[in-house]
Simulated assay, not measured.
Amino acid sequence: MNFQFPEVTECKVTHVHVRREFRGKDSGVPAFDLSFSKEGSNELLDLIDPALRTTLYFNAAADQGQAAMPDVLAVLPNLRVPKLNAGKFKYGDKDKWKGFRFVLDYGLGDAQSNIDVADTTVQVVEFECKEGGSCVIKWKVSFEADKLSDELRGRLTGLTDETVFIQLIPSSNVQQASGKQAKVPESEEDKDATDLFREAHGDDSDADADADADSEDSSDSPE
């Protein structure tokens, strides 16, 4: 998951949804879904997927022979297919990723004045590509707010259409919370078919294999 804003970043709150998060049979705890958008260079697409920018944009001048500057990120201002879906695309099939720290920075130089929430869930919703090399990305941050004071919750409810400054920092244990294809742990990815078979059938499979090998050796030996 590349999506993150480790440095304080300007963006716009497009919607605030207040709800209750239920845990079993309890009465639930207050929770928020904050929707954001940010417009800027199409390099923002690299935060979603590094392949998107070169897939959707190209440099017409460079294709006509204009020399590129060495060691400079390629400028791709032109849409490859301007009429494709009017440049608007959904992303991720509702995939959600849990394990982000969300900070709403009020710029007062005092961490106590910020809203700082650990273990939030992030969903990249959609993006819009524009001719000239700009784009708009949209995402959602969700979290339980039972540990926030009434004053801080009140601040959050009035953020719609406001320009804010945030940080979105992934922890060392970001995991896919929902979506069609959950992330496979690295330890599982490294296992081959033999390892998986042994886990499913136990170590007896090794013993059976050894027994078969001994049987073949005895049948091959001269009487």
Rank of each mutant, 00 (worst) to 15 (best):
S178T: 14
G92E: 00
T14H: 04
V184A: 11
G132K: 04
K138F: 04
G133K: 02
G65T: 07
A209I: 06
A61V: 09
R80W: 09
F102I: 04
S221K: 13
E7S: 14
R153T: 03
N59K: 09
A209V: 05
L156K: 00
G107K: 11
F5S: 01
S219P: 00
S113N: 13
A60W: 11
L104H: 10
E144P: 03
L79D: 04
T54C: 03
S205P: 00
C129H: 00
S35F: 08
H17M: 09
T160W: 02
D212W: 07
V141Q: 03
G107R: 10
V75D: 12
G28E: 06
E188W: 03
Y57H: 08
T14W: 03
H201G: 00
D33S: 13
A213D: 10
Y57R: 04
L148I: 02
R20K: 15
R101C: 08
S178N: 14
A31V: 04
I115N: 04
A31F: 00
L159C: 07
A68N: 05
K147F: 09
V124A: 03
Y91C: 03
F22Q: 11
G40Y: 06
S219I: 06
R198D: 06
N85A: 14
N42C: 09
R155N: 12
R101G: 07
I115E: 04
F22H: 15
G40W: 07
G109M: 05
V136W: 08
D204S: 12
D116M: 02
F197A: 14
K88A: 14
V141E: 04
S221E: 14
T9I: 08
D49M: 00
R80D: 07
L45C: 00
E10T: 15
D150A: 14
Q175M: 14
K140H: 05
G202F: 07
K138I: 01
D192R: 07
G99T: 11
Q176A: 12
L76V: 03
V117N: 00
Q64H: 13
F5C: 01
F100S: 04
S142E: 08
G92I: 00
T163W: 06
